[in-house]
Write a protein that binds this DNA or RNA. Structure first.
Lengths: 223, 223
DNA sequence: TATATACGAAACTCGCCAGTTTCGGATATA
DNA sequence: TATATCCGAAACTGGCGAGTTTCGTATATA
C-alpha cells in the first residue's frame, strides 16, 4: 500500500542509483485534494482520472507515475483524511456534557462533516468490494466522529455527571448515525436545530440526563 | 414516469389499432426482481443491463421495449418495493412499547431490512443526481421503517405509557438510522443484541422509560 | 390463414474511460 | 555540460457497456 504517494520504489532492494530530476512530491497533496473534490461531486464510478488531473492542473501520466491505478489513488486520498481529524485535546471543555456536545455544533465542523458524508456516499458501493478502502474509510469517517462523543461521555462519567452503567458504545454512535442518515437517506441539511434535537431528545435522555419533558424549557435554548 | 412497465404507449392519443402478439406483462415482476438482485450485488454503476436480462432469462431487447433506459428500469424496480412494506395493521400489539419494538426483531424482517440496505448502498451515489429516484427510494426504504416506530410510539402515547411531550419525529428515526449506519458504514451485521441495545439503551430512555440503569436487569431480558 | 407484433438470443455500433505512450521542455545529478 | 528523469499536454489503445438491430420463432388479431 502507498501512503501520500511515498511508494517503496526509490528504495528498491538492488539500488539502481537514480539520477536525473527528482519527483516533486509537493504536488501530492493537491492531487489528493482534487481527488476528494471530484469524489464528493461525482462518486467513484463517475469520477474519471482525467477529471482529477485537470482539476489538479497535472498531467494524467504524473498521476499514474505515483499511483498504480484509480482505485489506489482513491484509497490514498481517503486514507490521508484521517490526519485532518480533531486533536485529542483542543476539544471544548465546558464543564457539562450538554455544553460539550452543543459546542461541537459549529458551522465549520458541520460543513466539514457534510463534505465527508458526500465523499462517503461516493464510495459506499465500492467499500463492499475493497476491504482496504473499508478500513481507511472507517478510520477517516466513522472512528473520529464516534471518538469525540465517546470522549465527552467518558469525561462526564469521570466527573460524576453520568453513571458508568450506560451502554457507552451504542450512545456514542447515535449522533454520527443520525447525521449520516439525514444527509444520505433523507437528503436534508444538518441544521443546528436538528443537532440540538438529537442531543436533548435522544443522547442526554439515554444517559439519564434531562428527562424533564417540558418542551418549553428547551425551545428557549434552541432558538 | 412508468410504473410496473405499464407505459402509456398502448393508449396513444390517436389509436393505431394494435394487432399481433401482445406484450406479456406477467414477466415484468421477474425482470424487476432480477434488477433488484443485481442492484444489491453490484450497485448501480457496475450493474449491466445484460446481467439483468440473463438473470431474468429475458432478451435485452425485451427490457428496452418496456423501459427506455437503465435508469428508468432501476427507478421502477425501487418504486415497486414500497408495496412490499408492512401492513398498517398486521403489526404486533403486545401491550407495551418495548414488547412491540422487540417483536419487530425477527430474522425474516431483519434479513429483508439488510437486503434493502444493500440496494440502498447501490443507489446512494445516484440519488443525488436523480430527484425521482430520491423520491421512490425515500418511499421504499426510509418512510416504511420510520412509520412503524412512529405507529408504536403513537399507540404508547394513546395508551398513556409515554408522554406526548417527546420529540416523536426524532426518536422514530433512531432505529432506522442506527441500523443503516451499522450496515453501510460499520459493515457489521445487524444482530439481535444490537437491536435490543438500541431499544433499551437509546429509544426507551429517550421516551422516559426504563431509566433504571442496573445493567443486571436488562442482561436477563436480552439473553 | 395471413399479418403484425412479441419473444430470446446474439451480433452490432458507438462513445467513454483506464491505462500507455509520445512529445517538447524543465531540472537535478554526475 | 551531458544525461536521466521529471513535468504537463495530448494522442493513442483496448475493453466494456448502453442502446439498436437482426434473426428465427411464437402467438394473438383480423
Amino acid at each position: 500500500m502507498t501512503l501520500l504517494g511515498l511508494t517503496t520504489d526509490p528504495a528498491e532492494s538492488n539500488a539502481p542509483v537514480r539520477s536525473g530530476r527528482k519527483r516533486d512530491h509537493s504536488r501530492d497533496p493537491e492531487i489528493l485534494a482534487a481527488t476528494l473534490e471530484v469524489l464528493a461531486e461525482e462518486g467513484y464510478d463517475r469520477m474519471t482520472v482525467d477529471m482529477v488531473a485537470s482539476r489538479a492542473k497535472a498531467g494524467k501520466a504524473t498521476l499514474y507515475r505515483r499511483w498504480p491505478s484509480k482505485a489506489e489513488l482513491v484509497i490514498d486520498a481517503v486514507a490521508c483524511m484521517k490526519g485532518a481529524s480533531f486533536d485529542p485535546e483542543n476539544l471544548p471543555d465546558t464543564g457539562s456534557l450538554r455544553g460539550d456536545l452543543v459546542a461541537m455544533i459549529k458551522t465549520p465542523t458541520m460543513e466539514d462533516g457534510e463534505r465527508k458524508l458526500q465523499i462517503m456516499a461516493g464510495i459506499v458501493s465500492m467499500i463492499s468490494r475493497s476491504p482496504e478502502l473499508a478500513l481507511v474509510a472507517h478510520q477517516a469517517f466513522v472512528e473520529p466522529r464516534a471518538a469525540v462523543t465517546r470522549f465527552f461521555i467518558q469525561r462526564a462519567v469521570e466527573r460524576g455527571e453520568v453513571s458508568a452503567e450506560h451502554d457507552l458504545e451504542t450512545v456514542a454512535i447515535v449522533a454520527p448515525a443520525m447525521t449520516a442518515y439525514r444527509v444520505l437517506m433523507l437528503r436534508q441539511p444538518v441544521t443546528r436545530d436538528f443537532m440540538i434535537s438529537v442531543i436533548d431528545d435522544v443522547i442526554l435522555p439515554a444517559l439519564g440526563l434531562e428527562q424533564m419533558h417540558q418542551a418549553v424549557g428547551r425551545d428557549k435554548l434552541s432558538s
